[in-house]
Write a protein that binds this DNA or RNA. Structure first.
Lengths: 112, 112
DNA sequence: AAAATATACATAATTTTCTTAGGTATATAA
DNA sequence: TTATATACCTAAGAAAATTATGTATATTTT
């Protein structure tokens, strides 16, 4: 687990990237997908996730689809057509920011 | 300029990296160095910088040396022997975090 | 069958970190 | 002489996260 300090400010970007690639996901699923993809190094907390999802929906970047699974509800989120631009911009901005930090801190990133 | 959201959480790492490489710098100098090195893309605000420097000093990670320059004071900060470990750890942790984010967001970082 | 864990949503109080806005003072350039 | 640059600092407020709960159903373990 990284110190929470580092993860600050990346939550929206992570959410928007995952939802851009997966077309619909629900909150609980997002936390588990991120944990899985990062080998447990990034664990989103629900207290941070849900308010952010609500905010993105209120801004028209995400839309929701509530589904009943047995007797439980599940709230699927998707990126709206308008939100797609925002999602791309967020990821691009983060990418540039990373380049700047790599230069500034003189890092050698591991490439896939 | 990057949205301040992205820069959140990187301030300590930036300060500690610069001071690790330069052995002593003063606050005003740090802001200008970062601005110069990033082509204006990252601009530290004094309201964030000074309290952070004070906190790092209080934690024994930085030490200070106040110098008179004409009639003005200048407060030089250096990484303490103990702080060197912390500085290295911070930069290493950020480096790993970068790798994780590059993988998670499927990015192609620009290499030096 | 009972207890524990997993699924799945949510909010509210507090803490952390930063922004914004201000304050003090000297030195230099226009 | 007026503006900009140098150089420090703090305090109020905003933003974003953590921590701690709360509700409820489903499944697995003992």
């Amino acid at each position: 687990m990284y110190s929470s300090e580092l993860i600050k400010g990346t939550l929206k970007t992570i959410i928007l990237k995952l939802l851009s690639d997966n077309d619909k996901m629900y909150g609980y699923e997002i936390t588990h997908k991120v944990k899985e993809l990062t080998g447990g190094k990034i664990q989103l907390t629900e207290g941070a996730l849900y308010p952010t999802l609500h905010a993105l929906e209120a801004q028209g970047i995400l839309s929701t689809d509530v589904v009943n699974v047995g007797n439980r509800i599940r709230k699927y989120y998707s990126v709206t057509p308008n939100g797609k631009k925002v999602a791309t911009e967020k990821v691009n901005e983060f990418s540039e920011f990373l380049d700047t930090m790599i230069f500034l801190l003189d890092l050698q990133p591991k490439l896939g």
